[in-house]
Simulated assay, not measured.
Amino acid sequence: MRRLLLRLLAAAIVLAVAGLWITRPRTVDAQRFDAMEGDAEAGEMVFTAAGCASCHHAPTSEDKLVLAGGQVFPSPFGAFVAPNISTDPQAGIGGWELVDLASALRHGTSPEGRHYYPAFPYASYTRMTDRQIADLWAFMQTLPADPTPSQPHQVGFPFNIRASLGGWKLLFLDDGWVLDEPPSPEVERGRVLVEALAHCGECHTPRNPLGGLRTDAWLTGAPNPAGKGTIPPLTPAKLDWSAGDIAYYLETGFTPDYDTAGGHMVAVIENFAQLPAEDREAVAAYLKALPGGSAEN
């Protein structure tokens, strides 16, 4: 019996080590960015579409380009606090390299080799291209530094065990597209905005008990993670607005019924209003091209 127990213990240790190895934090190969120089002007559009300032600007600051962090985002797993991502070398990410940003966006991995919580929507950002990441990095270098220290997340056991996030990533981190075959270049551009940069699915798609996005119910609406109300569906079967209505809403915040956007959508619309009209139209075309709709509606 003792020999059997020792064998079982040894097998358990081997399996645990193998599991930790398979789910270890992954990083991007730095060489892929060696010959790439970012364009800050293009990066500003990436920054705006991705909503970086919406989450990371200081809640008490009127300047939304001061990315000192501090906003609190409640969830069923605890409350997550947006960190400082300003150019400050100690409190922010001023000591990072481009590859560090790429590893964070693509793999949810910090420069110290730790897993980030998926409250940071890297499950969507993982679809970003190298060019978009390099341009974003170039723009972020132009932003002001702020020495405000990042605050810890308010997450209890067992969700505070970051090693478990490797298993979450193994199950749910996928850089494939939800809409496999966009019928036009416009819909393809909309796919980039909806599925990657603007990460619309992070709020408008329901999640399974482990917090993974249910892509089989893509954009069909979801409970509000703050616990109040629901996030509305965007599928053609539920959103009967025309493509023009959708594009206009993303520019102005006004619905076809003369209502106005509220909650976090206010910040989303502030971002989309700064993008070219073609981008808002591309999002509308994408939503109309989802199953049950038509890109020509």
Rank of each mutant, 00 (worst) to 15 (best):
R3I: 14
L8D: 06
A12R: 11
A12P: 08
G19F: 04
T23P: 06
T27F: 06
A30I: 13
A30P: 06
R32H: 05
F33W: 07
G38E: 00
G38Q: 00
G43C: 09
T48S: 08
A49M: 05
G51W: 00
C52R: 04
A53D: 05
S54Q: 12
P59V: 09
E62T: 12
K64I: 13
V66R: 07
F73Y: 13
F80H: 11
P83R: 02
S86I: 08
A91D: 00
G92A: 05
G95P: 00
D100W: 06
T109R: 03
T109F: 02
T109E: 03
S110K: 02
E112P: 04
G113Q: 02
R114W: 09
P118A: 06
A123E: 03
Y125Q: 03
T126I: 11
D130F: 06
R131L: 12
Q132S: 09
I133H: 01
I133Y: 01
D135E: 05
A138Q: 00
Q141G: 12
T142L: 13
L143S: 03
D146A: 15
D146I: 13
P147Y: 03
T148Q: 07
Q151E: 15
Q151Y: 10
P152Y: 02
H153Q: 09
Q154N: 08
Q154E: 10
R162A: 14
A163I: 14
K169E: 03
L170M: 04
L173I: 05
D175S: 11
E181L: 11
P183C: 10
E188R: 14
G190M: 03
V194F: 04
L197M: 13
L197A: 11
A198C: 09
C200M: 07
N208P: 08
L210G: 09
L210F: 12
T215F: 10
G221Y: 05
P223S: 08
P223R: 05
N224K: 00
A226L: 01
K228L: 10
D240K: 15
D245M: 07
L250V: 12
T252C: 03
T252P: 00
D257T: 14
T260H: 04
T260P: 00
G263A: 03
H264C: 09
H264E: 12
M265K: 04
E278R: 14
E278G: 11
E281Q: 15
A284M: 07
L287E: 02
L287V: 09
L290N: 01
P291N: 08
P291G: 12
G292F: 00
A295G: 10
